[in-house]
Design a binder for these strands. Structure first.
Lengths: 137, 137
DNA sequence: TATTATATTGTAATTATTACAAATTAGAAA
DNA sequence: TTTCTAATTTGTAATAATTACAATATAATA
């Protein structure tokens, strides 16, 4: 069941540890762009000796290798995304949910031609989501 | 000299205070997307009794009224921009500079049609800037 | 000029993240 | 399988950004 994640780590020459596997599994199964604290709190249930520093370290390592990506959409805390392909995000200021927006960025080529070397592309929209709009208030 | 900023505040029915004027002036004259601390440190030179909380409050008020915008590009701290029209930004991971990228976002209409209400649009690119590329290393 | 709601100040609290040393462990080599 | 070592995990302490809040001061109105 964890084979998928073992493979991911080995392909990237990253040592396979239970903490890294569980972190990956959590991100894969929770596509809600969780915070470090959300990941930590959940995983600590099953592994009480888990340290939050380990979560920080694991996420950093996974990100460095391009396996996952981090979002700076909220401004106050980092959020993580198992999906590592470029896509956009919508943050609802009302309910706090972060919604995936699957659109291409047609501007990347312009940037590439500008002489800068692009490693990350982030498209963030912020406002009130469809659901919250319907609810009114 | 500060008339420009007085006008901006009055147009938005915001009380005119020296702190707000100086904050606006600083942002207008420093298009480097400064942090709260940078703004505070600089303005404190001329006004030693200035409180950092005031800078936070002023920036929040100005942002609420759409006079300035905040950037969450770095993830660890907010940055502020006098330019309030939609444009993109490039963060160089080497030198830390944030460069304005004047491109349109052709995707906004897609989002608007999706049922979400969009208040902010952020386009962030991260990597190594032209200058740092030339320097090598 | 007097009044009042709002803004500023200063301090303390909160929250996210990083630093770091000691203990543990994954994976290579014997 | 056992040993070894570099890398990882853990736990605590430190740092940094932001927010809360009460007391004081001030802008703008009457």
């Amino acid at each position: 069941m964890l084979e998928k994640y073992v493979k991911l780590l080995k392909e990237n020459s990253i040592k396979v540890t239970p903490q890294r596997l569980e972190t990956l599994k959590y991100l894969d199964e929770n596509r809600t762009h969780p915070t470090v604290d959300e990941i930590y709190s959940e995983l600590k249930e099953k592994n009480p000796s888990l340290s939050k520093t380990t979560i920080y370290n694991s996420l950093e390592t996974l990100k460095e290798h391009g396996i996952i990506q981090s979002l700076t959409i909220s401004g106050t805390e980092l959020r993580y995304d198992f999906e590592n392909k470029i896509h956009h995000h919508f943050l609802c200021k009302k309910c706090g949910n972060i919604i995936d927006i699957d659109i291409e960025c047609p501007n990347i080529n312009k940037i590439l031609n500008s002489g800068h070397e692009v490693e990350e592309v982030h498209g963030y929209f912020k406002g009130k989501c469809k659901k919250c709009m319907k609810k009114g208030s």
